[in-house]
């Protein structure tokens, strides 16, 4: 426990909310992120992205202001720079992009569950896109050709031409589902938190 500041009724909570949630997301990325990375849990990136999206969605249930998710993500991304380890630029770009996608999905309505699900799915899907994009940047078009060749070969081994593509689709489906669950989770957590803080709907 430290000094307790008795808060008064706020005038504008935009920046304080972005600060507090940015720090929270940053802390989750540093602690839980390292934990998932260390355990090499499958779909760890998607789980982390959907948690981040859940946090942003919960935040928007409490304060439905446009632009909040984006600013929060920028703060969280810079907080990630405290993370131990060599390369942090990639995760920082990832966090920023996830924030941007959640912001876009919640543009229509912050408190509509459909938008929350879409936000979660987009954030989780970004991890796949991010992987492909960074692979492209790192290794060039050759790697994408290699991925396609692997999918085709997998189809040949399984005795069905399109089997490889179906597997890829299944993979994307799992990632989207993780994101959707994160979206629903964030929406419910945010609604409950807002209710217990007696914030009007």
């Amino acid at each position: 426990m430290g000094i307790q500041h008795h808060a008064k009724a706020p005038t504008s909570l935009f920046w304080p909310m972005a600060t507090a949630f940015g720090a929270l997301w940053g802390a989750v990325e540093i602690t839980l992120g390292s934990f998932l990375h260390m355990l090499k849990i499958p779909f760890g990136g998607a789980i982390l992205a959907s948690l981040g999206a859940a946090l942003l969605i919960a935040q928007r249930q409490v304060l439905p202001q446009r632009g909040l998710s984006m600013v929060t993500a920028l703060i969280a991304a810079l907080c990630k720079s405290l993370s131990p380890g060599g390369v942090i630029l990639g995760p920082m770009i990832g966090i920023t992009m996830e924030g941007l996608l959640v912001e876009l999905a919640l543009l229509v309505s912050s408190r509509f569950i459909g938008c929350a699900i879409l936000a979660g799915m987009l954030a989780a899907m970004w991890t796949v896109f991010h992987k492909l994009l960074s692979s492209f940047v790192f290794y060039g078009m050759t790697l994408i050709e290699l991925y396609v060749a692997v999918l085709q070969k997998a189809g040949q081994w399984l005795g069905h031409e399109g089997a490889g593509w179906w597997m890829a689709l299944l993979f994307v489906g799992i990632i989207s589902s993780i994101g959707a669950i994160g979206g629903i989770f964030g929406w419910r957590v945010g609604q409950d938190a807002a209710r217990s803080l007696e914030i009007p709907p």
Binding site: A20, A54, Q59, D192
Partner: peptide, 22 residues
């Protein structure tokens, strides 16, 4: 886990409110 998450979000909101204190 769900209640912990709600608690975390509430904590962040209260922290945000405390930042508004002069």
């Amino acid at each position: 886990i769900y209640l912990t998450a709600v608690d975390l979000v509430k904590h962040a909101v209260l922290l945000a409110h405390s930042l508004e204190t002069p």
